[in-house]
């Protein structure tokens, strides 16, 4: 009786099979190393705030100068052409398109026309895109930017946008 009990007690501890255990330990370490490596490379990507893609400048009540990109010269747009131009910009927008409308105190009326065209173009865009739910809907945003009344204010803003002044990003 005591012998059996002793035998039971003696061999009651589980025999550790070391080899599979080591196999698991090493593979765990390997996977953790892989994860940490991917974590480090992915978290190094910096996040910058959104950029301005187009700028429309208005300094007198009859026309707007549209800068489509930093390198191009401005295109003069009259009041009648606003709707067409905004719809073209909205139609060609892919991803996120940000447009700044910079104006001074003489363009309040023109601003209303521009924003009305913008709201209309956005609504048309929504109607079109609602039909095709597979593609991601492009985002076209318009923001106002105030300009001082002196004639060089618009040039200063454009120079800053083009990176020609020192101390570029705010």
């Amino acid at each position: 009786m005591s012998g059996r009990a002793a035998a039971r007690a003696g061999s009651g501890f589980p025999r550790l099979l070391l080899l599979p255990f080591l196999d698991i330990v090493f593979s765990t370490i390997g996977i953790i190393v892989v994860f940490i490596a991917v974590h480090i490379t992915r978290s190094e990507r910096p996040f910058y705030p959104p950029d301005t893609d187009h700028i429309a400048v208005c300094v007198e009540p009859s026309s707007i100068d549209l800068y489509v990109s930093r390198q191009t010269d401005p295109v003069a747009i009259s009041v009648d052409q606003i709707t067409e131009v905004i719809e073209t910009v909205a139609a060609e927008a892919t991803g996120v398109t940000n447009m700044v409308f910079a104006f001074n105190e003489s363009c309040f009326g023109l601003r209303r026309a521009l924003h009305a065209s913008y709201r209309n173009a956005i609504r048309l865009q929504e109607d079109v895109e609602a039909a095709d739910a597979q593609t991601a809907m492009p985002v076209f945003r318009l923001r106002d930017w105030p300009l001082e009344s002196d004639t060089a204010a618009a040039d200063r803003l454009i120079a800053r946008w083009r990176g020609e002044t020192e101390g570029g990003a705010p």
């Binding site: 959104p50 950029d51 945003r141 923001r143 570029g168």
Partner: peptide
């Protein structure tokens, strides 16, 4: 609708 820029923007879009 926030898509980050590829490099520091010269004129941050005010959103």
């Amino acid at each position: 609708s926030i898509e980050p820029a590829d490099s520091p923007p010269t004129l941050v879009f005010p959103v």
